[in-house]
Write a protein that binds this DNA or RNA. Structure first.
Lengths: 166, 166
DNA sequence: GTACAGTGGTTACAATTGAAACCAATGTTA
DNA sequence: TAACATTGGTTTCAATTGTAACCACTGTAC
């Protein structure tokens, strides 16, 4: 429908932006498609939102965390964590206990039920990841790993040290 | 704060998910950080949301599109496009004219002002992209390009043909 | 012609999200 | 000890987003 012939690969004006090749845009499309697909898979089965599943995924690996430590681990904001935690408590997927040493702090863990759900979702998630990278060679997978790591470092610097030029 | 020593690279239990290495998660964190940083840069200066800027970016390259064609190009949904278009009209960043051949269809274009803004944002966006990939070698940049393309194809198949196993 | 399906686009309403205000407990300074 | 800043976490309210219903117009079948 859209005539592309006037913008051949070899001659792009510098003052034009080829959105379909613009990395931030491609990352956004890719990430949204992937997250939506996966969350449909487990969301329907276990009534989990993306933030809630993330909290479970972290607690599955690192027990005895507080909400603040979850914030630190996930880069999610504290309100999102708070809501995810309260919905997980309603589902009985996690437990919460007071820290006697600091009565503001509340220690979170997967419940028995939560561990069961976790154990069922993990292979599902891994299956999606495997399917996603199925068309990559093993060299490409290693390359991707290193590249993403570098990009994450850079993007984190932006959020910590402020933006370019400012 | 979190003790990582009990999960060395070399020995990960298969029934655990190392979220910080899980590709969908990393993509999400990366994409959010990048989009937020960039949109802060142009959003503050030009009162543009991410969807609105995307519409401008497409119209800057492909004039005379209708809203439906924007949907096709961007993979955004039609409501988001409609809202972006109406806010851009308010800003006088785009123009809208009826298609005499089909009175439902409305043809969109950057206005004079819109072209000026576009011309100022494009280098800004490119600067961010360059900064993001600054730590990649030129080989890595090419690798990334090809890899993302493959991943996008796969993820698109998910959204078109339904999920794995279903 | 009139019916009726399909398309372009907007509106309405509910769910999700984010920013800021807030409460309670702790730490720090004097 | 009293004052005040800090931290952990929740609530409130407004902005953003997604789904579905909707209106206007077009194309096709009869």
């Amino acid at each position: 429908m859209i005539d592309n012939q006037n913008t051949p690969e070899t001659a792009v004006k510098q003052d034009e932006l080829r959105l379909e090749k613009f990395l931030p845009y491609r990352l956004s499309v890719l990430s949204n498609r992937v997250s939506n697909a996966i969350s449909q898979a487990y969301g329907a089965r276990f009534h989990l939102t993306i933030p809630a599943w993330r909290v479970m995924a972290i607690l599955g690996r690192f027990p005895d965390l507080s909400a603040a430590e979850l914030v630190e681990q996930t880069a999610m904001d504290k309100v999102a964590i708070s809501r995810a935690v309260s919905s997980l408590l309603k589902n009985d997927y996690i437990t919460r206990s007071e820290d006697p040493a600091d009565r503001r702090r509340q220690v979170l863990n997967l419940s028995e039920l939560g561990r069961e759900v976790y154990a069922r979702i993990v292979p599902l998630a891994q299956q999606y990841e495997n399917d996603l990278i199925a068309s990559l060679s093993s060299e490409e997978r290693e390359q991707l790993d290193g590249i993403i790591e570098k990009l994450l470092v850079r993007a984190k610097e932006w959020s910590e040290r402020g933006l370019i030029d400012e």
